[in-house]
């Protein structure tokens, strides 16, 4: 299996639901807690696996605002894993999920340096690297109802901008949608072969205009009453 996400930039409204869902699930999840610093003070910050950034493409008045959620891409050629000296970072053979073994990490940050997508964040309190687990502790938890065995971020997304599935299966939702809508990798030139794909905004719709050729009403008297029953 090659598990990963598809993010639809055509429908993401930047609500941050996925980011917070990720936070709440994972803080009690397999790599939890996700420490927060200065939670009620100046410059609050903490460990997040999923962050939403916002960009503007083009200039006013033709600019387009784009909301851009990013989490681990579970890259096929994950340099974050190859560089890790301890072997704490690994890509699971069975499903391609990239994980950090919290017991083995020495907190050298090297993997974060190797990650182009900013997907890894050091938990300074635990001294170990943390990252998106693709909710491994949800997707395989047989005690959860079957339709809830999905990443928390995918389940929660109100505008259905996130899809989860197996890219090895050509008939999976993620395979189909990324095929149909030309799912793109970010910074493909780096060769990480990120598994997650991004769907660019759909083409602008064209709607015909309706012009009543025969008519150009100038004043009320131009109208003729029609016989219509109330």
């Amino acid at each position: 299996m090659k598990l990963g996400l598809v993010i639809d930039l055509d429908t993401c409204v930047g609500c941050n639901a996925c980011a917070v869902a990720c936070k709440q699930w994972n803080t009690s999840g397999t790599t939890g807690p996700l420490t927060d610093f200065e939670p009620y003070g100046k410059d609050p910050t903490g460990v997040w696996f999923n962050r939403i950034r916002n960009y503007e493409v083009g200039d006013y008045p033709n600019s387009k605002t784009v909301h851009f959620p990013m989490s681990c891409m579970h890259c096929d050629d994950a340099a974050c894993v190859t560089v890790c000296p301890t072997g704490a970072s690994y890509k699971r053979e069975e499903d391609g999920i990239v994980l950090v073994d919290q017991d083995k990490c020495m907190g050298c940050n090297y993997c974060a340096w190797a990650c182009p997508y900013g997907a890894r964040e050091l938990d300074r309190e635990d001294g170990v690297m943390k990252k998106c687990t693709l909710c491994v502790d949800r997707i395989y938890d047989e005690n959860l109802p079957e339709d809830e065995r999905k990443p928390a971020c995918v389940m929660t997304c109100p505008s259905h901008a996130r899809y989860f599935g197996d890219f090895d299966d050509p008939n999976s939702e993620v395979s189909i949608i990324s095929r149909e809508r030309n799912g793109e990798q970010l910074m493909p030139e780096l060769g990480y072969e990120p598994v997650n794909k991004y769907l660019r905004p759909r083409e602008k719709k064209n709607v015909d205009t309706y012009v009543n050729e025969t008519n150009s009403i100038k004043a009320v008297k131009d109208w003729v009453n029609r016989l219509v029953a109330r």
Binding site: N16, A19, E38, K42, D43, P44, T45, V47, W48, R51, I52, R53, N54, Y55, E56, V57, G58, D59, T65, V66, F68, A112, G118, E121, L122, R124, E184, Q185, L186, M187, P188, E189, Y198, R200
Partner: peptide, 23 residues
């Protein structure tokens, strides 16, 4: 290339967090 919007100027509007992060 980072955002896949290759045909126009791309500018950051908001980073999505108040303070600095590990990144």
């Amino acid at each position: 290339t980072a955002t896949s919007f290759t045909r126009s100027m791309v500018r950051l509007l908001d980073v999505g967090h108040t303070a600095g992060t590990f990144l």
